[in-house]
C-alpha cells in the first residue's frame, strides 16, 4: 500500500460541555505521550477551528461526566468517530488506550518509516533533471508536463542528502538535515557557489565514477575466483565508494546497501536515460 493510501487515526482532546477539563500538566503529559507515538492531536477549545478529519478515523478523548461521551456522528458518514473516556488515566494509559483503539481500525501505525525524503523548492528548481539522472533509487520522476517531482519518497535512503548536493540551484531540501541550506534555511550566494562546486561528483573523483565502477567490474570478472570472494568484493566496493561518500555526504550504510557495481551501473544508466528523455520531451513541448 502506498504511503498516500494509508489512513491515520486523528485524536481530538475534548474538554467542552459534558466533560471535565484536564489540568494543564496532565494535558501536556497526554499530548506529549500521544505525539511521541506519532498521533496528531487536536485540542478543541472555544476559539479556533480544527482541521477536518478527512480520510481519518477520529478518536475523541475526554473526561466525560459520568463516563458518558456526547453523541456525535459524521453527517456525511465519511469519518468513523469513536469515544474514549480517560477519567483517571495517566498519560501512559491514555497513549496505551489510543494505541489499542488504533489497532481496531485500519489506521496505520505511525513511526514505522522515518520521513526522510527530498522536498523540492520550485521557486529555485530549473527542471534541469540532474537529480533524476543522479538518484539510483528511483525517488524522482516527471509528471505529465515533464516537470520534476518526488514520486517515490519512501525509496529514499535515510540520512542520505546526496541528490541535494548535485542540485546546481540548491533547490532540494531535506528538512531533517542538520545544516543549511539543505535543511530549508535561506540559500546564500556562498551556499550556491559551494553547491555549484559539487555539481559533478564524478569530476571531483577525477573521472566518471560509473566508468570507474565499470572498469573495476570488468577487472573483477577476469580475476581468479579466489579473488572474488565476498570479503574482497566488499572491500572493493568500500574503496571505490569512499570518495563518493565524502563528496556527497552519503552515509556509509547507504553505500554499503548498494548492489553490485554492475547493478549500480545499470541503475545509473537507467536514471540518466530517464533524465535525458525528460529533457528531450521538454524541448519538444517548448
Amino acid at each position: 500500500m502506498s504511503l498516500q493510501d494509508q489512513t491515520t487515526l486523528r485524536i481530538v482532546l475534548y474538554e467542552g460541555d459534558g466533560s471535565q477539563p484536564l489540568e494543564a500538566p496532565g494535558r501536556f503529559a497526554a499530548m506529549t505521550a500521544l505525539l511521541e507515538k506519532g498521533f496528531a492531536v487536536t485540542r478543541a477549545a472555544a476559539a479556533g477551528a480544527p482541521a477536518r478529519a478527512d480520510r481519518s478515523s477520529l478518536l475523541v478523548l475526554g473526561q466525560f461526566i459520568g463516563g458518558k461521551p456526547p453523541q456525535a456522528e459524521d453527517a456525511a458518514g465519511e469519518v468513523s468517530i469513536r469515544f474514549q473516556d480517560i477519567t483517571g488515566f495517566d498519560a501512559a494509559r491514555i497513549a496505551e488506550s489510543v494505541e489499542s483503539a488504533r489497532a481496531l481500525t485500519s489506521a496505520v501505525k505511525q513511526g514505522d518509516w522515518k520521513p526522510w525524503f527530498p522536498v523540492i523548492d520550485y521557486d529555485r528548481c530549473t527542471n534541469c533533471m540532474q537529480c533524476l539522472s543522479f538518484c539510483l533509487f528511483g525517488v524522482y520522476g516527471v509528471d505529465d508536463g515533464q516537470k520534476i517531482q518526488v514520486q517515490n519518497n519512501d525509496n529514499c535512503k535515510t540520512n542520505c542528502p546526496a541528490c541535494s548536493r548535485v542540485c546546481p540551484e540548491a533547490a532540494i531540501m531535506f528538512p531533517k538535515y542538520k545544516a543549511g541550506p539543505i535543511n530549508g534555511d535561506v540559500v546564500s550566494d556562498s551556499d550556491l557557489n559551494r553547491e555549484k562546486m559539487k555539481v559533478d561528483i564524478s569530476a571531483l573523483l577525477g573521472g566518471d565514477v560509473y566508468s570507474m565502477l565499470r572498469e573495476r567490474s570488468e577487472k573483477a570478472q577476469s580475476r581468479f575466483s579466489k579473488e572474488r570472494d565476498a570479503d574482497k568484493a566488499l572491500k572493493e566496493r568500500q574503496k571505490c565508494l569512499v570518495k563518493l561518500a565524502q563528496a556527497g555526504d552519503i552515509p556509509a550504510e547507504v553505500l554499503m546497501s548498494l548492489p553490485s557495481p554492475d547493478e549500480i551501473m545499470r541503475r545509473a544508466e537507467e536514471a540518466k536515460a530517464k533524465g535525458q528523455a525528460a529533457l528531450a520531451m521538454q524541448k519538444q513541448t517548448s
Binding site: 498516500q4 491515520t8 492531536v41 485540542r43 472555544a46 476559539a47 482541521a51 478527512d54 519518497n153
Partner: peptide, 18 residues
C-alpha cells in the same frame, strides 16, 4: 485551540488531507 502534529514531514509524505 490548536493542532499538534507528530511530524509535518510525515504528513507531507502521506499527503495527509488535514
Amino acid at each position: 485551540a490548536f493542532e499538534a502534529v507528530a511530524d509535518l514531514c510525515e504528513m507531507s509524505a502521506r499527503r495527509d488531507p488535514a
